[in-house]
Simulated assay, not measured.
Amino acid sequence: MIPNNIQAIEEPLHLGCLVKKYAIPGKMDLTSQWIEFLRYFPKLKSGNLSMTYGVCWHISDDEMEYWAATKVNPADQLPSEFEHRSLKAHEYGVFLHEGHVSELSNTVDAIFKGWDEAYEYQPDFNNRFFFEKYGPSFEPQTGLGGVEVWVPVIKQ
């Protein structure tokens, strides 16, 4: 499997995040986390609902964080339940997720288990995260459309 394209984030991406920790393996209640995120969303000064992010940050082999997030100004005051986080400038392999959002883990598994080792870009395992980007065509009511998975990459 190879990315649909390679894109660079030229400057750090500043995010306002509702952060939750999850055990690996374990049940991740991401739906409740997103519902909570949306409840606080009106309090975000510069947030944009047409572009949200789900960041999977691996803390260790048995624990990860999931950030329900939107781009914000680093100077914004956030609700007390939120944290400022940022993703560094880097190159990313971008994969389109074609199915329902509940099937996103299948796409992620296919990316990491089926990466073409001959491809000129490889996952950058020095970065222990990837993120989901929910664009303007994503329909939260149906769980369909406009979802990409971004994986940090390095050129071989």
Rank of each mutant, 00 (worst) to 15 (best):
E120P: 13
V153L: 08
S86D: 13
H90V: 00
H14Q: 06
L49V: 06
V151W: 10
V55S: 14
V94I: 15
N126W: 04
G135I: 01
G47N: 05
N73E: 15
L44Y: 08
L49I: 14
L13D: 08
E91Q: 15
K88S: 13
V94T: 04
K88V: 09
P12Q: 04
S80C: 00
D29Y: 12
V72Q: 06
L18D: 07
H58G: 06
K45A: 01
V55Y: 08
G54Q: 11
K27W: 06
H100D: 11
G146Y: 08
E11H: 08
A110L: 09
A23Y: 07
E132T: 15
V55N: 13
E103W: 01
N126D: 15
I59H: 06
V151Y: 07
L15S: 12
V72L: 07
D29P: 01
T70D: 04
Y134A: 12
G114I: 03
A75L: 09
L144W: 05
C56Q: 12
A8T: 07
E65V: 05
I111L: 10
R85L: 06
F125Q: 08
N73K: 03
H58T: 11
V149Y: 03
I24C: 11
E10Y: 04
L96Q: 13
F131A: 08
H90F: 02
E63A: 10
K155S: 10
P3S: 02
S105Q: 14
W115E: 04
I24A: 06
G16M: 03
T52N: 13
W150N: 01
K20G: 01
S46D: 14
V55I: 15
E103H: 09
H58A: 14
F112N: 14
P42Q: 02
H84T: 00
I24R: 14
E81N: 05
L87W: 11
D109A: 14
C56L: 01
F37W: 09
N4E: 15
I24P: 09
T142G: 06
I9M: 15
E36L: 00
S102Q: 04
W67C: 06
D61R: 12
Q7M: 11
N126A: 15
G114Q: 13
Y66Q: 11
A110C: 00
V101S: 14
K71D: 02
Y119L: 07
E36W: 00
Y22G: 12
A69H: 06
G47K: 01
L104V: 07
V108G: 04
I9W: 09
D116V: 02
K71Y: 00
Y92M: 12
G99S: 08
M28C: 11
K21F: 00
E139P: 01
D116M: 06
H58P: 01
L15I: 10
V153G: 10
H97C: 12
E139I: 12
R39I: 00
D116W: 02
F138L: 08
A75P: 00
V108L: 05
P25V: 00
E139A: 13
P123S: 13
L44D: 10
I111Q: 12
D76Q: 04
I2P: 03
N127A: 13
N73G: 05
P123E: 12
N5S: 12
T52L: 11
V72M: 09
N73M: 03
N127V: 05
K88L: 12
L78S: 02
P74H: 01
